[in-house]
Every structure is written in C-alpha cells, then in structure tokens.
Amino acid sequence: MQQITASGIYARRLPELGFCVIELQDVSYGYGHGSDLILSQMSLRLAKGSFHFLTGPSGAGKTTFLKLCYGELCPNAGHVRLMGQDSATMARDDLALARQRIGVVHQDCQFLDHLDVAQNIALPLYVSGREITEAERRNLTQLVNWVDLRHRATALPPELSGGERQRAALARAIIRDPDVILADEPTGNVDWDMAMRQLRLLVELNRLGKAVLVATHDLAFIRAAKKQVAARVLRIVGGKLQLAGADL
C-alpha cells in the first residue's frame, strides 16, 4: 500500500491528539415540522485519532446522522459543533472552510458527471480557488494509482462501475488531507478484497491522527476492522445512539 501523505494545502494541524473535531450534543432531528424525530438526544464527540463505526438497520438514520456531522442538516434541537463552531450559527464561508477539513464518502458518491475521474478526485483542490501545486499533483497521481483507477483516470463517472465509483469517492474525500473522514456505506458496491483495501486505507489514515466515522450495516466489515484498530461501534436503535454490544 502506498503511503498517502498530507497535501499541506492548509498547513493547519490540530493542536493535540484527542482534540474534538466534531461534537454532537443532545442532538435531535426530524424531517419537516412536527414530524416524528428520527434521531433523538444524541451525543457524540469525534476526537482526533478516534475510529467509530455507526451501524443500525436501514432507515435508522445513519445517513441523516452523517449529514448532521458535516453541516448539511441542522438539528431541530441540541448542538452540532464543527471544529468548535456551532453549525447552526456558522457563517456560510466558515461552514465551507470546515467542510474542507472533513472528507465525506457519500453513499451515492455524488460526482460531477462532466468532469473525468481525476478531475472529480481533485475537486476539493479546485474549489480552494488557487492553482494546484506540483506536490498536490503528485499526491493526486499517487492517490489515483492507490485506488487502482489509473487506467480510468480520464473516464467520466457514468462510465464507472459501482466499485470504481466508491474508490474514486474515497480518493476525493482524502485528497485534501482532512482531519475527519466520514464514510457512508463505503463497502456497499465493492467486493471483499476492495473493502479490505479501503479498510486498510482508513486504518492508516486513522493512525496518521484522523478521526474516522464509518456508517455501515456490514457487520463482517466491522469485525474485520476491529482486528486492526481500536474502534467503537455505535448503533442507532429507535432513534437513540447506543454503544454496540460485545458481539461487535
């Protein structure tokens, strides 16, 4: 496995291991006014260097939970703090800057179909609004190679298979050396070997000090991960967040 190194675009390091990058405090959320709450009274601190799995049945609210974590949704009650700032009251530019420090692997990947794979992976660099440095170009090439998409670098997203899309999404999430990685069902469309490769990458990034939160219903993946990293497994049950039992 090739070493994925920090790009150094924003040479801001978190002050210490254990610094809380995302914090949810008594968060409740329901879609629409007066509707039932999907998530209720949830609290979680994602500290630098932590590794969490989030599991639960389909429709339990895992994706909603992740959306709260990167500020796409604001809670109905409670507080979500991104890099110490409340997401509900953050200025839009500050929210954008916070998102530059959060790498997200979306379940549906969300690519720009008019850009090729390499350009999609480099998207977080493009939106910085400045020229991409030579070091960043090297990182991009390295990353494309690592996720085994070198031969597909110039393909457009609709031409990719599910697994290739998932790998490209992971590469895009980490291209900017984020402080946190949020992954929503990253193994949903990949075979076991590729799932293990992704796991190794996530573990390695975690060892570099990044907080990782993976939402998945793949219990085998979680068990395999727990052999490699000290991960906490959280489960959403009935809208509440619980620590999973010893079976995980």
Binding site: Y70, E72, R92, D93, A96, L97, R99, Q100, V104, H106, Q110, F111, L112, L123, P124, V127, S128, G129, R172, R176
Partner: peptide, 16 residues
C-alpha cells in the same frame, strides 16, 4: 443545483 450541492459539500465557498 446538483453540481452546486456537490461543490458546497466539498468545501466550495459561495463566492467561488
């Protein structure tokens, strides 16, 4: 809209 949403999610500022 979808393009703009993706750009926001990867950290693009409104001005960009």
């Amino acid at each position: 809209v979808q393009v703009i949403r993706v750009l926001r999610l990867v950290g693009a500022r409104d001005a960009y």
